[in-house]
Amino acid sequence: MKADLYASSVGVYTRGLATAERVLEKAEAHAKASGMSEAAMLDSRLAPDMFPLRRQIMTVCDFAKQVPSRLLGLPLPEQLTGELSLAELRAEIAKAKDFLAGLKPEQFAGRDEAPVTFSIGQDITLPAAQYALGFGLMNFTFHMSMAYAIARHLGADIGKRDLFAGGL
């Protein structure tokens, strides 16, 4: 499979991180206007067995850094853990954006078939393009969409256009 790995990872994730910033901004504005605490906002979820808003954003940041790292055979950045505050989440988004800004298209050239091994309870190895498009992009989009859905469920003034805060 031939893919533009730079555009489908760094390009998409950079725009998605801008969307994550927008989701947090809108959720925070709603929380303040309605008297909701920051912790209550960040701990909100759509169902008891799903990640709360805080963890959805953390996962977005993790995928934005880890997928390109795997594609390039770089050491994996550590996954985010803990109960990050709104300010800490914003800082992690900025760190992820800075990480992506340091990657160049030529680093991804010819890597479509490079093996990428990852674990989801068991080790799986896929060609880089299949991993990027079939696993990385799907998961990043899912968690970004869930963050948006949680903010919307809370009552934040957020709409479909906010999903494209980082551009198309």
Rank of each mutant, 00 (worst) to 15 (best):
E21H: 12
D43P: 00
M138T: 11
Q130Y: 12
L76W: 08
G73A: 07
G11Q: 04
A132Q: 06
A156S: 07
G11P: 10
L168E: 02
Y131W: 07
E88W: 04
A64G: 07
Y131N: 12
L42R: 04
N139S: 14
A96V: 00
A31T: 03
V23P: 05
G35P: 08
I158S: 14
M1N: 04
F108H: 08
E21P: 02
V10F: 14
S9W: 01
L72Q: 07
T141M: 05
H30I: 11
Q56T: 04
A39C: 00
L86C: 02
A129T: 03
L86S: 11
E78I: 00
L126Y: 12
D62A: 11
L80G: 11
K2G: 06
S8K: 09
E113F: 14
L5T: 05
A18T: 07
N139Y: 12
R55G: 07
V23T: 11
A147E: 01
S145C: 10
F135R: 09
L17H: 07
V23E: 07
H153A: 13
V116N: 14
I57H: 10
Q56F: 01
A64Y: 14
R54L: 10
R152I: 02
A132S: 13
M138G: 03
A132P: 11
P48T: 02
L42T: 02
K32C: 12
A3Y: 09
P48G: 15
K160C: 10
E83V: 00
P68A: 09
L100I: 02
A39M: 02
T14P: 01
L71W: 10
A31Q: 03
G136Q: 12
P75D: 11
A7R: 14
G159I: 00
R54H: 08
V60M: 05
S8E: 06
D162L: 03
I158K: 11
V116S: 13
P105T: 01
L80W: 13
E106P: 13
K95G: 04
A3F: 09
D157N: 07
Q79N: 13
A91K: 12
P127D: 10
L154P: 01
K95F: 01
R90A: 04
F99V: 03
I120A: 09
L71P: 12
A39N: 03
L89C: 08
A94T: 04
P127F: 14
I120Y: 15
T59M: 14
A29I: 10
I120S: 04
Q79E: 04
S34E: 06
L72T: 00
E88Y: 04
G159P: 08
D112N: 12
A96Y: 09
L80C: 11
G102L: 07
A151S: 10
D98R: 14
G82N: 11
G73H: 10
G110C: 13
L84G: 12
D157Y: 10
